[in-house]
Amino acid sequence: MKREVPLFITFFVGTLLIASVFIPPAESWGENFSVYFDIIAVFAFFLGGGNLLRIHLQKVASKRPDWGYSIVTLVAFLVMLAAGLFKLGNPGGISGNLTTAQSWFQILFQNIMSPLGSTMYALLAFFVASASYRAFRAKNRDATILLVAAFIILLGRTPFGTMLTSWIPPQYDLLQVPNLAIWIMSGPNLAGQRAIMIGIGLGIVSMSLRILLGIERTYLGDDR
């Protein structure tokens, strides 16, 4: 029951979806199963929320180091949940639009979550600068190629790049930095992306087969 049933479910559902592609009346099954998948994923979100509550409540109860920050997480989680799930502070009530401009949910999103999220990503600019220093040391031929490509792409998207090479005549305008950047994106970069995508595609197809045939079972965890 613990291993055989899940293996059978995986095999049955996966094979059914692959077979449905070849049977015209069953072509919509893929879309239907995607909806079922989304519904289960919502329960997974709730499972994640429950787990978050459990872990932080345990941390607060046992007063582990930095337990005060767990209170911040718990309060933020519960306030946002109340504003979103029960639509507290929503002018339209329970049937109102979740993202109405004056709702608490939207105000919290715009003034807390959005600034925090974008600043988190913006923070990476500082670390990218440090990574650039290491990457941009042309220690060998491969690193030099990476450096030159990144430099042309960066320069090609700035007015300075345009200004620098605008004197090049039209019959050689590929050598103008903005055009060269476009060419790198549509030529060598596309080729590299394609080679990677073909590799990924083959990898996913073989992994799917391994899962469907029960060769790959790590998703089942241990037998406890």
């Binding site: 094979t15 692959i18 893929g30 199963f33 996913i204 197809v205 799917s208 469907l212 089942l220």
Partner: peptide, 25 residues
């Protein structure tokens, strides 16, 4: 909960098999 997980994994494997074979290969 493994039964639900198996459904998710099976759906992903089945859909990805065709999708990636078509689009990425």
């Amino acid at each position: 909960s493994r039964w639900a997980l198996a459904f998710i994994v099976g759906t992903t494997a089945g859909l990805s098999f065709i999708r990636y074979l078509r689009s990425d290969f």
